[in-house]
Amino acid sequence: MTENLNHQPYIDLKGIRKGYRIGKESIPIFSGLDLTIARSDFVAVMGPSGSGKSTLLNMLAGIDSPDGGQLRIGSNRLDQMGESARSSWRAHNMGIVFQFYNLLPMLTAAENVELPLLLKPLSARQRRVRVEAVLDLVGLAGRGRQYPALMSGGQQQRVGIARAIVADPALLLCDEPTGDLDRTSADEVLAMLAFLNRDLGKTIVMVTHDPHAARQARRTLHLDKGQFSEQRSAA
């Protein structure tokens, strides 16, 4: 696997082990996985179902922890953090985009976007200004009062992206962000992710089944049987 030697790795996984127990049987997912991702990189992770893509994303998000090995993001060792510390780390360092948007249906688009800001010491006015700015950035200016149910899938995903970036995290994790969208909407979302990476310097790790989506990334990694192989690296 190649590594961008011009940059200190932002994400650094060394010898990650992870398995699941089903009854008395232990099913290994990773047995010594290594991965480095540079700051401001845009990496697509592909692989067949059950290859461990979601498990990897969950570990990067700090909602799952490895059984062994080192998992460092920035200067933080996630594998050594407790639940509470990982929760706090997520609030300040990471945004996540879900396949099915995971918007709270009883809250408006603006209220959904505001959620991560509630974890920060900001006044209501400061939060409102940032929410409006980020809705504008994703092309939903003036739609903040709409409820998710009244929006198209593409619009909902843009709200999801707005929620992921409103707290200005360095890392953006995307779990099949175009998996539930038609091609036009998917292209809009991918263009937005490319913009966030290229113009705002966000580090993006995107799990996807869609080769078209993967082509938007700078690197595509193929995960199979618990190991990576790099299929494509942008010039």
Partner: peptide, 14 residues
């Protein structure tokens, strides 16, 4: 379940 898990993933506390 999904709503709780979502906001917890965003960093909301237990």
């Amino acid at each position: 379940t999904v709503e709780i898990a979502t906001v917890r993933t965003l960093g909301f506390g237990r």
